[in-house]
């Protein structure tokens, strides 16, 4: 049996790990709440902008993007992964899901986030562009990514979707189609604003183009936010599991420590008893 002092030393280390995972768990939980709020605000913003876009009645099917459906043109897969390693298993699942549909000859991979880039490199899968995940604390600048997507006929985004704190799914969307799909809504809730009754500065076309670019940017930003939410939740789960495991280990160590301590005191007691017996025997021998 190990010495009680050695067990005590190890249990202190496990206690520190338990405290640390507890801190990470609460940071992840705060982050989940913060990002959820942003996702809601961003959705509201998009809906308001879309309402106004509809009122100018440009044909979104032709205007929303100028991308061709040329089958010969390459497609792009975007993976939105975490910037750091502490993201649970969501990035691994993301890559596995993407690889099921990946064809090297026709698809280019664009990675957002160091974690995804590292995992792809380890798997020996090449990617054409890498971007850091844009800052989500105040403002998401996705314009470099939007520029990089220009040459592609189709853009599929793979990202982690937050379902609940315990469940995060891998989701993929066709960025262009999802924008086009929004124009399928039939209800007309706004009167048309035309050049006859509305002042457009600059022209209607320029305004429509600006709004489309903004909505495309918002759609991509939204997936980044969703992804960041899923990563935070996944991190929370990993930390909760790690904290629980550390707590169990600590309980085992405490039990082992008490056993070792008891065993040590039993041993000492035995030694004392033997010594007393020996002394008594010696005393009896001398008396004879």
């Amino acid at each position: 049996m190990r010495r009680a002092s050695a067990i005590e030393k190890e249990s202190v280390q496990i206690g520190t790990i338990e405290d640390l995972t507890g801190v990470f768990e609460s940071i992840a939980s705060t982050q989940v709440a913060k990002v959820r709020n942003k996702v809601e605000l961003s959705k509201e913003f998009f809906e308001l902008l879309w309402r106004r876009y509809r009122s100018i009645r440009v044909d979104p099917k032709t205007r929303i993007t100028n991308r061709s459906d040329d089958k010969k043109q390459k497609q792009a897969f975007i993976i939105i992964s975490a910037e750091a390693g502490l993201s649970g298993d969501i990035d691994k699942r993301l890559i596995e899901s993407m690889l099921k549909n990946y064809d090297k000859a026709t698809i280019d991979i664009i990675v957002l986030g160091t974690h995804g880039a590292t995992q792809l490199t380890q798997l020996g899968i090449s990617f054409v562009r890498y971007f850091q995940v844009p800052e989500t604390d105040s403002y998401i600048d996705v314009s470099p990514v939007i520029e990089a997507l220009e040459p592609y006929s189709k853009v599929i985004v793979y990202y982690g979707e937050y379902v609940s704190l315990g469940v995060q799914d891998v989701k993929s969307i066709d960025l262009v189609s999802s924008m086009r799909d929004m124009s399928h809504e039939d209800e007309i809730d706004e009167d048309t604003m035309t050049a006859e009754d509305t002042i457009f500065e600059p022209s209607l076309d320029e305004i429509a183009e600006q709004m489309e670019k903004t909505m495309m940017t918002l759609a991509l930003s939204q997936t980044i936010l969703e992804s960041s939410l899923a990563q935070a939740a996944s991190r929370f789960n990993s930390m909760a599991v790690a904290k629980k495991r550390a707590g169990e280990l600590l309980a085992d160590y405490r039990l082992e420590f008490h056993r070792a301590k008891r065993s040590e005191s039993d041993r000492q007691l035995r030694e004392v008893m033997i010594s007393i017996k020996k002394k008594k025997a010696r005393a009896r021998g001398l008396a004879r």
């Binding site: 100018i56 509305t198 002042i199 500065e201 600059p202 209607l204």
Partner: peptide
């Protein structure tokens, strides 16, 4: 402010769209 310059929107303003 837009490309034309600084402007004010007051109640009763005509329908207006601007970058």
């Amino acid at each position: 402010t837009n490309k034309v310059g600084e402007f004010d929107i007051l109640p009763g303003h005509a329908d207006f769209f601007s970058i």
